[in-house]
Amino acid sequence: MNTHHRGRWPITADLAFLRRQLRDHAAGAGLGGTRLDDLLIAANEAATNVLEHGGGGGTLTIWHDGTDLTVDVVDTVGRLTPLDVHRRRPSAPMDRGFGMWLMGQLCDEFTIRQLSGRSQVRLRMRLST
């Protein structure tokens, strides 16, 4: 059904381009409506984190199999740790960490791995069969 199971792009200041690519791929994988919006918002927050705190550059990869749609966002400084997924709801939306909290709310799975000198944020949505 799908001819493109994987997409990978550098994270640059053109976040609108990244969102268009994500939307196309996620829609092609069968994600739609609110759940597509949720993934889009979460992935945009992850990419924004890379621009703001993650060294200003990195990569975003999206792929899917029969059960899940996965987005990996990798930065170049590796400051995020697995513990950062457990952020509590910020007391004010102005606080830093708001985007991190949002990712956990919006996605079925939100994990962080530390690679050598980099951090990888993984966002995952189950695909209904």
Partner: peptide
């Protein structure tokens, strides 16, 4: 996004 929300709050 969250930075837009921060602008509305500012």
């Amino acid at each position: 996004d969250s930075t837009g929300i921060r602008i509305f709050l500012a």
